[in-house]
């Protein structure tokens, strides 16, 4: 998918674009409340006169980093637990997989909501809680891969020359099994961003005035018929970003085969 490369470039641009934003996203300009897109404010302004384009750019930084780090945490946990389960098998495997089954039964969004509501919603908390509830897929994937790779000849050979278990796992099994995990992780980034924007939309994620695509959309609830740009642009930002990551994932899937 060549589209993946194009969209990937766009995603990168979002990361660095904040530096390109012309206006201060926090600057309140009473004279310019709720202005539709114009040459001065290319995406319009919100109810407090703040430039929407700038807010979206800075919000992108936040939403993207939350997505990336949350998935990073989830993948790390998943890799560790999954490879231990797959490699050692037997009782440890059953135990860990039971744990995965239990975690999978939980309505993750409910859990995240509950914790976000009960603790103070900070960006760090959000990253951690999303990470802690999305590692299960990775764990299962890598466990499966390791289970099938475990018996192959090159692993037997490593054992024969006396390599330690952790060395086998880290240097041989994981690199060979990592393919599907990377694809899965890429797709999850989109999911994490979706969760974060949902949380922020409900008021339990990133707190204003720090912009996040989700919490910019809070305002659109009250300005529905009046200011279409507040609804359209942040949502499109989310859409394009998630689409971008999905495309990359599809492209990677084809390469890995």
């Amino acid at each position: 998918m060549i589209g993946s490369i194009i969209i990937a470039a766009l995603s990168l641009m979002a990361a660095f674009a904040p530096i390109l934003a012309r206006h201060d996203p926090a600057m309140i300009d009473q004279s310019n409340l709720l202005m539709p897109p114009s040459p001065v404010h290319p995406l319009g302004t919100d109810g407090l006169g703040r430039d929407l384009a700038a807010r979206i750019c800075y919000g992108g930084r936040i939403s993207l980093s939350i997505g990336l780090i949350a998935v990073g945490i989830a993948t790390l946990i998943g890799l560790i637990l999954g490879s231990i389960a797959g490699f050692y098998g037997g009782f440890i495997d059953s135990l860990l997989m039971r744990f995965v089954d239990i975690m999978l039964c939980f309505p993750t969004f409910y859990l995240i909501l509950a914790v976000a509501a009960l603790a103070r919603p900070s960006i760090f908390n959000i990253m951690v809680i999303i990470g802690l509830t999305s590692w299960m897929g990775t764990a299962r994937l890598i466990r499966g891969e390791i289970l099938s790779l475990k018996e192959r000849e090159f692993i037997q050979a490593e054992r024969a020359i006396g390599a330690s278990n952790s060395r086998i796992i880290i240097r041989h099994l994981i690199p060979n099994a990592i393919g599907p995990v990377i694809v899965n992780a890429t797709l999850s980034i989109g999911g994490a961003i979706l969760v974060e924007s949902g949380l922020s939309f409900l008021g339990l994620g990133v707190q204003p005035p720090t912009p996040s695509w989700g919490n910019i959309l809070i305002e659109s609830k009250s300005t529905l018929g009046v200011a279409w740009w507040i609804t359209v642009f942040p949502g499109m930002a989310i859409l394009i970003t998630i689409l971008g990551f999905n495309f990359i994932a599809e492209g990677l899937k084809k390469k890995i085969g």
Partner: peptide
């Protein structure tokens, strides 16, 4: 379908609300 999959549900709701309910 790809687009639908990537779009946040609550955003689509907002858009539809705008279109079908208000306008």
């Amino acid at each position: 379908l790809f687009l639908l999959f990537a779009a946040p549900g609550f955003w689509l709701t907002l858009l539809l609300m705008q279109l079908l309910c208000i306008q």
